[in-house]
């Protein structure tokens, strides 16, 4: 059984591609056969975050238009034998993607025995985002604890419940929230929405909370998804999220403010 997971958000810049790359690596590290597809035609970035930008020869649009085979276009990851990347086209516009074309690629991947297909959605609610979510079994909605991101996520949740293949068949896409750039200190100071606030407003449980961390930028600088850095809280938090997606129960980490010493408590430092 192939599980199709869309990583989406509505709002741009909240960490969709970072999340897609880390989820894909994490699933592959658990031995799963994984394909991660960039749906952001014209603005591809997944290849950079995955560190395979110099090995892109053919892309998703080439496969859909019959200019290359899926086998030719899938880029094999250097770190995990079972992980493959399908890059977006940088030169075409987003109308190059068609529902039938996307379905064929997904069906071919399923026939090839992939366990998971991770669809990295573009921002917005237009064609690319629509096609990224249309065939999904599960959705990871990436949210920053910030008003515009939360509002846009609610919009996306509405679309997941109405404009997907599952919705059309009277079923539901299984939805998960993933909070990124979370800062326990700011939550504690009353400056940032808490996990509970976001869950309550959106009516959905979180599958992971990624703390704000400089390691995320360092990871993208190097082209190594942050989940590979197991020293880093963000990497560990992503690993927890992957395990939860696979059905494991793990307690949330890095969501509480570390206890201060006596003097800083006294003086509010």
């Amino acid at each position: 059984m192939t599980e199709i997971i869309v990583v989406t958000s509505g709002k741009g810049g909240v960490g969709k591609t970072t999340t897609s790359a880390s989820l894909a690596c994490g699933l592959a590290r658990y031995g799963k056969k994984v394909a991660v597809i960039d749906f952001d035609v014209g603005l591809r970035n997944l290849d950079l975050i995955m560190g395979c930008e110099r090995r892109v020869v053919y892309d998703f649009v080439n496969v859909i238009q019959g200019e290359a085979s899926l086998r030719q276009a899938l880029i094999k990851d250097k770190r995990f034998e079972t992980l493959h990347v399908l890059a977006a086209s940088q030169t075409r516009d987003k109308d190059a993607l068609t529902k039938e074309g996307v379905q064929k690629v997904l069906d071919d991947l399923a026939a090839d025995g992939f366990d998971y297909i991770v669809c990295d959605s573009p921002a917005g609610i237009e064609k690319g985002a629509f096609l990224a979510m249309y065939f999904a079994d599960q959705a990871v909605v990436v949210v920053n604890p910030e008003v515009s991101s939360v509002r846009d996520s609610d919009r996306i949740l509405g679309l997941l419940a109405s404009k997907t293949r599952r919705a059309e068949n009277g079923e539901r896409v299984k939805e998960h929230l993933l909070l990124t750039r979370y800062s326990p200190a700011r939550v504690d100071a009353g400056e940032m929405l808490s996990i509970g606030d976001v869950e309550e407003v959106l009516g959905l449980k979180t599958v992971g909370v990624i703390p704000e961390s400089p390691d995320v930028l360092n990871a993208s600088n190097k082209g190594e998804p942050v989940i590979l850095d197991l020293e880093s809280p963000a990497g560990q938090a992503y690993d927890d999220a992957v395990a939860r997606l696979m059905g494991e129960t793990r307690p949330m980490r890095f969501t509480q403010l570390e206890k201060k010493g006596f003097f800083s408590k006294l003086f509010g430092g």
């Binding site: 910030e146 008003v147 939360v150 509002r151 609610d154 939550v187 009353g190 400056e191 940032m192 929405l193 808490s194 606030d197 309550e200 407003v201 959106l202 800083s264 408590k265 006294l266 003086f267 509010g268 430092g269």
Partner: peptide, 25 residues
């Protein structure tokens, strides 16, 4: 919570955000 925290102006913007989101959503 520090001993001298009462000296700082306190405004909990997170709860404002939550209320605004509840209404608009």
């Amino acid at each position: 919570m520090g001993l001298f925290d009462f000296l700082r102006a306190k405004k909990n913007t997170a709860s404002i955000a939550k209320d605004r989101l509840r209404i608009i959503i």
